[in-house]
Amino acid sequence: MRVVVASGKGGTGKTLVAANLAAVVACLCDVVLVDCDVEEPNLHLFFPSEKKLLPVLADVPVFDTVRCDHCGECARTCQYGAIVVLSQKNLFFPEMCHGCGGCEIVCPQGAITMGKREVGRIEFSRPRAGLTLVSGVLNEREVAAPRVIREALRYAAGHPLVICDAPPGTACPLVETLEGADFCILVTEPTPFGLHDLSLAAGVAGVLGVPAGVVINRSIGEDEIIWRFCRSENIPVLWTIPFEKRIAELANEGKVLTDEIPEMKELFLRLFAEVRHRGEAGL
């Protein structure tokens, strides 16, 4: 089963929920936790430990400057503006290249071959018994977030239990993470902004056919705005995390709540039981 923890935007406590859920589940069975927030991965802050690195490579053109006669065909073909041909040399912008290989095909001089370049990396660690952490990391200025996410998910594929921390937003990176998941936990705050992002993220899950449930974070007991939305959309509210200074403090220190507060462990286990039940039944 693969569970995705998403929120539509950052800062709602999505990573906190993913980290704690994985920590309590790891006491019961093996779990792989995947950080799909590749532009700003931070799950490792909760689980410091030694890591192994594997590069994520993308295809890029390599120019043979002797063969090239600067005809400009490659630049005309590139849809992404990654190549500019001057009279004496070609300029190439690797971070704009999507690796489609179009330029190689059209070059009349056979001056282009496809090579590789690193756009990011996957970090593996085993911070505690039962828990494997797989973090996707996109290099700065790169645009290929979906590619790094796909790679990270590939390493987790086939494992009986995978929990993913989704990227913020509702664009390609979220779609890449959610597609094919068995359940989506939507973490939100009981505010109009929270509701706005929640409704967008819930929409993406709906389109992809992934069943979803809501966790309301930082509740001060006035959550009607979220409940009303969930009732009208027929999305279950799985759990409400009260606003407590201690929770915020521990999270800021990078501590796992379920290690520090025994009741939290119970509550996260109950959340997991509910998610597993719904994910397996496709509810």
Binding site: G81, A82, V84, L91
Partner: peptide
């Protein structure tokens, strides 16, 4: 166009 407009226009 969606992307790479600057370099393409420069061309």
């Amino acid at each position: 166009a969606a992307g790479g407009v600057g370099p393409r226009a420069a061309q």
